[in-house]
């Protein structure tokens, strides 16, 4: 195959790079879209919730880190750190909702949005205050030297990101489609007062939504931290990109967020390769996509408009 004069081994390389980036966007985008689905509001503190969980995972990991105990131990504490990050973000997400958003549920829609921006500024600054502004390196728990697959070099971390992303997304989809609570979540997003009429505790479902969305963001945060670094504003750009991914897929739509993330990851990667956009201007791709989507298909690519029957 010879698409745009890119040799096939390089094409595979870019594809894997794009998919890995996309999987991370998808994981973060799910939180935006789930919260939007239920509360019709964008949680602009989502990126900072990701950052906070990542710090929790980071400190847990280095509290127990001991290279002399061998590879299995390191991987073990890494998995534990991932779980700690998820729990920390989940709790933080739920608390933020109770403190900063719930009292504003009946307020004009701009109020919770501003509250969210305020929370995000507070969290980033608290992190700078307590953890310092210097970025921290989260070492790979395994040997990350790249492997040669089909002529392209792929790192174990990339494979892990793809695997973890896939498992999390498949798990979420199963939860939402098949379980009693997952169905209650969908019902609540489709019609909140009627969901309450089914006996659903709507506040509990809202908390659950924040918990799951935040936990998924923490997973993305730890995966990003392995590839890059941990720092107080690490969630800002990742959060913005993921928000764009959620809009691309159709905000409020779970499959849309997954697809939007993958599309955005691929566009960013291939935009650099095919259009020759310099690496430094890579971020313009995502924002151009946002503008185009808002102009051409503001409801997103997967959103179908079901009209209410009278």
């Amino acid at each position: 195959m010879n698409l745009f004069n890119i040799p096939s081994n390089e094409l595979l390389q870019h594809l894997i790079n794009g998919l890995t980036l996309g999987a991370i966007y998808s994981l973060i985008a799910l939180g935006y879209t789930m919260v939007y689905g239920i509360l019709k509001f964008i949680n602009f503190a989502h990126g900072e919730i990701l950052m906070a969980g990542t710090y929790a995972g980071y400190y847990f990991y280095y509290f127990l880190y001991d290279p002399s105990k061998g590879a299995a131990y390191t991987i073990g504490i890494f998995i534990a750190a991932l779980v700690i990050a998820m729990i920390a973000s989940a709790i933080l997400g739920v608390v933020i909702e109770k403190v900063a958003y719930k009292p504003l549920r009946k307020a004009p829609r701009l109020a919770p949005l501003l509250s969210a921006i305020g929370v995000s500024i507070i969290l980033a600054n608290l992190a700078a205050l307590f953890f310092g502004t210097k970025s921290k390196k989260f070492e790979y728990p395994f040997n990350n030297s790249s492997m040669d697959i089909g002529g392209s070099s792929i790192t174990p971390n990339q494979l892990m990101i793809l695997a973890v992303g896939l498992i999390m997304m498949a798990g979420l989809k199963l939860f939402v489609d098949r379980t009693r609570l997952g169905k209650a979540m969908r019902a609540t997003s489709q019609n909140q007062p009627v969901a309450a009429l089914m006996g659903i505790n709507v506040n509990l479902i809202i908390s659950l939504t924040f918990a799951i969305g935040s936990a998924l963001a923490a997973v993305a945060g730890v995966l990003i931290a392995l590839e890059y670094k941990v720092y107080p504003t690490m969630g800002t750009m990742a959060g913005l990109k993921a928000f764009i991914a959620a809009v691309v897929g159709g905000i409020g739509n779970i499959s849309g967020a997954m697809l939007g993330g993958i599309i955005l990851g691929l566009l960013e990667t291939f935009g650099v390769v095919i259009l020759g956009i310099p690496q430094g201007l890579k971020d313009t791709i995502a924002f151009s996509v946002l503008i185009l989507i808002l102009l051409l298909r503001p409801s997103g690519i997967l959103m179908k408009n079901i009209r209410e029957k009278v």
Binding site: K183, R186, A187, Q190, N191, P193, V194, A195, A196, L197, M198, G199, I200, N201, V202, I306, E308, V310
Partner: peptide, 23 residues
């Protein structure tokens, strides 16, 4: 709260039916 009232044995068919359209 509403969920407890429903649990105590009341059901309401809401105005405009309120089916969950995407379920």
């Amino acid at each position: 709260p509403t969920d407890k009232i429903i649990a105590s044995g009341i059901s309401l068919v809401p105005e405009g039916r309120g089916v969950f359209p995407e379920m």
